[in-house]
């Protein structure tokens, strides 16, 4: 700053140890985890396994990225898992070879489902002031019902080849489509969040709703929009999953919302809103997926896996909390 009172001595802005740990704790954790896994199981870092991890991270990560937007405004979206299943099912329905439709139709139907449920969530939360927890809990059940209704809970087999490429295909023979989609989504989301007015407004709304409103921000529209983003990304994840498992399955996405929330929280985004970072969420996604994959490879008993994951989530938030006091 140019104009400083001469009386104030400014030291260079250095990071205290605590700030360092709270900012980079998850990243360090991720790196440590990768090293440990590699030491125990060299196959962990084989090309095909890295590709596996990235692919599954892409699909589950879509939910977490969308959730980050919602959580930044101080809300929560419990419906993402159900939306994922719902969109996956409806897009699969239109992607059946027997329907003979273009694969884009199926994708649009799926995304459309996300759009509808997301708008419903957003309108409930912003304009009708339903608490996000309650509103999205309700639409979670609605989405689940819509999913079963379509085929009477039966799975949808034999999808068109083009559609299946979205989930199982590799672009150029080696780069999974899912990863490409995720990268595109991430590029858009980073731009939205850090390079546009809209992103700034999201932080403002989450940080102080009243102040944002008084500053002339249409806070209702901002809040509404994040639920739409979250649902559309969840729908995308659902579509990719259907394409990947080459069928529509009603149980897709069950319980995924808790994972998504965990990833966001590990990434250092505060559930109170206004404070957080998207790259943190990416680390959260990778951390959880590497952990799952690694523990699976080591053959660690599923019950221990649950316990470990629980500690990781809590530990990450503890690290983050170290800095909250100032």
């Amino acid at each position: 700053m140019s104009q400083l009172d001469p009386g104030v001595q400014i030291k260079r802005r250095t990071m205290s140890r605590r700030q360092f740990v709270s900012t980079f704790g998850s990243l360090i954790g991720l790196i440590l985890l990768i090293i440990i896994m590699y030491a125990l199981k060299p196959n962990f870092l084989s090309t095909s396994n890295i590709r596996n991890i990235l692919r599954i991270s892409s699909i589950n990560g879509l939910l977490a990225v969308g959730m980050t937007f919602v959580v930044l405004t101080g809300g929560i979206d419990l419906s993402v898992g159900a939306v994922m299943g719902c969109a996956g099912m409806y897009s699969a329905y239109f992607a059946q070879t027997s329907m003979n439709k273009h694969w884009m139709v199926a994708v649009l139907v799926g995304v459309g489902m996300g759009l509808i449920i997301g708008t419903f969530n957003g309108v409930c939360v912003s304009y009708f002031r339903v608490p996000p927890f309650v509103g999205t809990l309700g639409s979670m059940s609605i989405a689940k019902g819509l999913t079963f209704l379509l085929t009477d809970a039966k799975p949808i087999p034999s999808l068109s080849t083009e559609f299946k490429f979205l989930g199982g295909g590799n672009i150029g023979g080696w780069l999974p489509t899912a990863i490409v989609i995720m990268l595109v989504v991430l590029a858009i989301c980073f731009t939205l969040l850090y390079k546009t007015r809209y992103g700034r407004y999201i932080f403002a709304v989450g940080g102080n709703l009243n102040a944002a409103h008084v500053s002339g921000i249409n806070t209702k529209r901002i809040i509404c929009s994040v639920y739409i983003i979250s649902s559309v990304l969840a729908a995308l994840a659902g579509i990719i999953t259907s394409a990947r498992v080459t069928s529509g399955v009603t149980s897709t996405g069950d319980g995924y919302e808790t994972n998504a929330i965990a990833m966001v929280v590990i990434g250092g985004t505060s559930l109170a809103g206004g404070r957080g970072r998207l790259w943190g969420t990416i680390i959260g996604i990778l951390l959880l997926q590497c952990l799952t994959n690694g523990l699976d490879m080591l053959g660690v008993n599923t019950y221990y896996q649950m316990i470990i994951k629980g500690f990781v989530v809590i530990g990450a938030v503890m690290l983050d909390g170290l800095n909250a006091e100032d």
Partner: peptide, 8 residues
């Protein structure tokens, strides 16, 4: 878990 989906 699912007869159809796991075929992939």
């Amino acid at each position: 878990h699912d007869a159809v989906a796991c075929a992939a």
